[in-house]
């Protein structure tokens, strides 16, 4: 079962504010996705983990950041020529490898890093 992207945002928001409605929230990393389905079991785990993070009364803000786990990602580039009427006669597909900084850049100075991700093969 998979969760709709808007439902994911809502569930994350609800979890962050469940203990304290004033808790600030920032969600980053899914901006390029207009529509997506997210593994529901993982969404549930994230909801629980947000609750766990907000157990600490000193937490004023929760950041939820989603990024590729493999920091060199394989993308398609789709180049389309659009006519006046909005139709497209020709498109070209190209490959693009994107190398970006991984989770390390978000973890500087963090005292406890509890890695609950499944192990990579």
């Amino acid at each position: 079962m998979h969760t709709k992207l808007p439902d994911f945002y809502q569930k994350v928001t609800d979890a962050a504010k469940k203990r304290n409605a004033d808790t600030k929230l920032e969600i980053r990393g899914m901006e390029n996705f207009r529509a997506a389905k997210l593994a529901s079991l993982r969404v549930g785990r994230v909801e629980d983990e947000i609750m766990e993070i907000t157990e600490d009364p000193n937490v004023e803000k929760v950041e939820v950041i989603i990024m590729p786990r493999v920091p060199e990602t394989d993308h398609s580039v789709i180049i389309k020529g659009i006519y006046k009427d909005g139709t497209c006669k020709k498109a070209i597909l190209e490959s693009m490898l994107v190398t970006s900084a991984g989770e390390d850049i978000e973890l500087e100075g963090v005292e406890i890093i509890d890695d609950r991700r499944y192990k990579l093969p």
Binding site: V70, P71, E72, D74, L97, T99, A101, G102, D104, I105, E108, L120, P121
Partner: peptide, 19 residues
């Protein structure tokens, strides 16, 4: 190990990638 077929012979930590 851990890299997919598309990945180059690259190491990455934080800001630094060595390809």
């Amino acid at each position: 190990v851990h890299r997919s077929s598309h990945n180059e012979n690259m190491t990455i930590t934080g800001r630094i990638a060595s390809n």
